[in-house]
């Protein structure tokens, strides 16, 4: 067990290093010049070069990479140029460790941006997760138990429709009809939970529904299939033969077995949306991790891209790891 955890942690670290290298390599392979984007139409090569220097893009990639890695453990200054530091110290931004870099386009430290964006994404993700888990599993179990009924066909059909609709379409539909046309829900917006939980929930309700609908549909199908399979297992017959009441057969015996594999998928999906729900965030104009990442890519904002990709990757591998641990805990047949 301990050996397993050490092994996994080491492999996560290795993977993150590998990802950071690839992001750097990919970034410089793109035939676009980030320095060129820093000034508008009236650009001279001299300004571009000066900006390139100020941004640090004139250094070799390897040096840039090691500067970035060093920043994770020690502080950095932007721009990192003793001449500028001496002439105009007010234009220097200090970046305390762990330093993820400085976004020239945003004029902000990347860590500040992430700190602002992550709670938004986390709010969307966690709320939607609860919604889709409860809805998806509830409807899935119900449709398995009512197999062959009109209710089942309706539920399965509806989930199929929801599953086939693209996220942005659901989002826009909700925004347009529910919020704007009939005013049934407030437009999406982020209020920190600690400031005003009610406003937080109100502002999040549409993104939650949007994101949850897509996932819930998948969970309905998964849960239904798992439940049907489990209900035909011999041990369900054993439970009934023991005289166990039907509700307990379903909850203690069938659901216990049918839902355990879903834990894995749920954990991975939660990790996935925590890493950024780009489409939902964009539709509802919420500055979460996903939208920040999309914008950074449009702007060729390397420090932000690297940070977002690394954060996303970290969240995903972390959840992968947690799910494996949880699964070993839930399924006695699995040993680590």
């Amino acid at each position: 067990m301990f050996q397993y955890v050490v092994k996994r942690v080491l492999s996560i670290i290795g993977m993150l290093i590998l990802i950071s290298v690839s992001v750097f390599a990919l970034f410089f392979a793109v035939p676009a010049d980030p320095a060129r984007l820093t000034c508008g139409k009236n650009c001279t090569p001299a300004i571009i070069e000066a900006n390139r220097h100020a941004l640090g893009y004139d250094k070799p990639i390897v040096v840039q990479y090691f500067d970035f890695m060093k920043g994770l453990v020690s502080e950095r200054d932007f721009p990192d140029d003793p001449v500028i530091a001496k002439n105009s110290p007010q234009s220097i931004t200090h970046c305390p460790a762990p330093c993820l870099g400085y976004s020239a386009t945003q004029g902000q430290l990347v860590s500040t941006m992430i700190k602002q964006a992550f709670p938004i994404t986390a709010s969307i993700a966690v709320g939607a997760f609860v919604l889709w888990l409860v809805g998806g599993i509830g409807i899935g179990v119900l449709s398995a138990l009512k197999r062959g009924s009109i209710l089942e066909r309706g539920l399965v059909g509806a989930s199929l429709v929801a599953y086939s609709l693209p996220t942005f379409f659901i989002g826009l539909l909700l925004l347009d009809i529910v919020s704007i046309k009939y005013g049934l829900a407030p437009p999406a917006g982020y209020t920190p939970f600690v400031d005003d939980p009610v406003a937080w929930a109100k502002g999040m309700i549409l993104p939650w529904i949007t994101l949850a609908m897509v996932f819930a549909a998948l969970y309905v199908r998964l849960t239904r299939a798992n439940m049907l399979e489990t209900l035909s297992e011999d041990y369900i017959r054993t439970a009934r033969a023991k005289g166990v009441p039907e509700w307990a057969v379903i909850v203690r015996h069938a659901m216990r077995a049918a839902l355990t594999p879903i834990v894995t998928i749920a954990g991975l999906d939660l990790g996935g949306v925590l890493a950024g729900a780009a489409i939902t965030e964009t539709v509802f104009n919420l500055n979460g991790i996903g939208k920040t990442g999309v914008y950074a890519i449009q702007q060729l904002d390397l420090p932000v891209i690297v940070a977002v990709v690394l954060l996303s990757a970290f969240v995903i591998v972390l959840f992968n790891f947690l799910v494996d641990l949880l699964y070993a805990f839930l399924d006695p047949r699995v040993t680590l």
């Binding site: 297992e233 011999d234 041990y235 017959r237 054993t238 439970a239 015996h253 216990r256 077995a257 355990t260 839930l330 399924d331 006695p332 047949r333």
Partner: peptide, 8 residues
Amino acid sequence: SALHPYYS
């Protein structure tokens, strides 16, 4: 298969 795999 007649015993539940998740319970002792």
